[in-house]
Design a binder for these strands. Structure first.
Lengths: 155, 155
DNA sequence: CGCCTCATGTCAACTATGTTGACTTGAGAT
DNA sequence: ATCTCAAGTCAACATAGTTGACATGAGGCG
């Protein structure tokens, strides 16, 4: 614990609570930041950022995915995908090959280097979750999952 | 209960899981989106967006906050604060007045209109949380809080 | 009093991530 | 052959953030 700056904790405490659920709301905010902070720092060191990571994450779990399907999953426009995707191809973290007969679509795969970066970035995030689950115990983890599923349904 | 597009659920299911914690990782991602989606849509209708909401949220809970303290809490540079803040002032959602003797700092407050927008936007987020807690029950909620606190500590 | 310092705040230029709209290209159907 | 439509690219723009340079005004001090 406590490779932290203490700042978030202070900030969390520094606001009056106008509603009962304000605490939960702020936990969500700082939780999101807490999970992604180290991963983002790692990615920045590699000259990448969160959108690149999202692409790598999805392709890792769907080898030979076409660009259209990737767009669908990421929920962004194809134009928004274009630049980060091309960077990943240039940097040879991804390869694209035309499909055998379905010549229309490019199929994406991670290279070894891409896989390594995806794993390390995601590991930073999983490590945060792992520690939190360990601290909260099995019943806490189960409760967390139940609530998060309900929240995530609002998409 | 389904004012939703179903899409996120599908996306969540559509990726192979390479690690045990991938599910939790994706829950965090879609949870964050699920909580903010309706609030963002409401804000967009008002010609505002998330940074404006963050400012309103903090000022609501710290009336007469100075700009420096606001910067500290939001964790962004004063230059980044500048444009959204000026928009809020122009639109008369915030007022700023010079401090009595501490003439150096501007003290910020919400106007009635600002308060109304802050409440409605935050209500959208709290409503999502409220429903999720109701579905998960008291023990689930307690577990969620414990885990989120542990995650949020990584800031 | 006049000047120095320093926190507070502003302006300008840049980067990154996203948007929409218009265009190109190529497969598959007729 | 040609038409159509999905896949993909290019251009222009919006927003949210960055850093750097500068303005301003309070308070300390010669």
């Amino acid at each position: 614990m406590a490779k932290t700056s203490q700042a978030a904790g202070l900030h969390r405490a520094s606001l009056a609570k106008l509603h009962e659920l304000d605490t939960a709301l702020e936990l969500m905010y700082y939780g999101w930041r807490g999970m992604t902070l180290q991963a983002d720092a790692y990615l920045a060191k590699q000259g990448l950022s969160r959108p690149h990571h999202r692409i790598l994450y999805v392709v890792a779990r769907r080898p030979d995915i076409a660009i259209g399907a990737l767009i669908e999953i990421l929920g962004i426009s194809k134009q928004a995908l274009n630049r980060p995707l091309n960077l990943l191809l240039e940097r040879k973290l991804l390869t694209s090959k035309r499909a055998p007969e379905q010549h229309r679509s490019k199929l994406l795969r991670l290279t070894e280097a891409g896989r390594r970066i995806e794993q390390r970035a995601s590991d930073h995030e999983r490590q945060v979750l792992r520690e939190a689950f360990a601290r909260a115990g099995a019943s806490g983890a189960a409760g967390w999952i139940g609530v998060m599923e309900a929240i995530a349904d609002n998409n």
